[in-house]
């Protein structure tokens, strides 16, 4: 697909600010409107990292929305942490997960108690208000950089982070 090349995007600067401000932004799209065979049209919503309670083991949560054709989240890395892995919580444990499907016209939800990112080896101990860049690599859409804020431990998307 000729449209693939321009979708490999590392977003910085103004666009990142928009991501953080609006919570979601369309970061990649193809020329057609999708369907399972068309290009994926991905946007990232509600990215956050709950402040780790101790040590530097943290979880990362976000939603990848897809208004186009199917895609897959293949790997995640970060310039600010040595290890970012995809995991799934089960009733009694955790298992490594991935690649994770981003269904056509659907969403991949990385959420508490389910599939999530495990972030270790921070170059700096995370603090409230910090922002960590996560580079999400998709099978078809290339790499999307998302700046993910560190929120209070009990934060959930859609609520004011009053700490509480």
């Amino acid at each position: 697909m000729s449209s693939r090349s321009f979708r490999t995007t590392a977003i910085t600067g103004a666009v990142v600010a928009t991501v953080l401000g609006a919570g979601t932004i369309l970061v990649a799209w193809g020329p057609d409107q999708g369907g399972a065979g068309g290009a994926a049209r991905l946007s990232i919503a509600d990215p956050y990292i709950p402040l780790p309670a101790g040590g530097a083991m943290a979880a990362g949560y976000l939603t990848v929305r897809n208004a186009g054709g199917e895609d897959e989240l293949v790997k995640v890395s970060s310039p600010g942490a040595s290890s970012v892995t995809m995991h799934r919580s089960t009733e009694t444990s955790m298992e490594s997960a991935g690649p994770l499907a981003v269904p056509a016209g659907g969403a991949l939800e990385l959420a508490r108690g389910g599939t999530h990112l495990m972030i270790m080896g921070w170059s700096k101990q995370p603090a409230l208000g910090d922002v960590l860049e996560l580079d999400l690599t998709f099978a078809r859409s290339g790499t999307i950089a998302v700046r993910v804020p560190v929120k209070p431990l009990t934060y959930r998307p859609g609520q004011q982070d009053s700490g509480n």
Binding site: P50, P52, A53, G54, G55, M57, A58, A59, H87, S89, M94, R112, G113, H116, M118, I119, L153, T154, N164
Partner: peptide
């Protein structure tokens, strides 16, 4: 366990919020 990133802090955090 404390190096559990997802379920343990979420559960204990939720109980903490409710206790407060």
């Amino acid at each position: 366990y404390t190096s559990c990133p997802d379920v343990c802090p979420t559960t204990m955090g939720d109980i903490g919020v409710a206790m407060q």
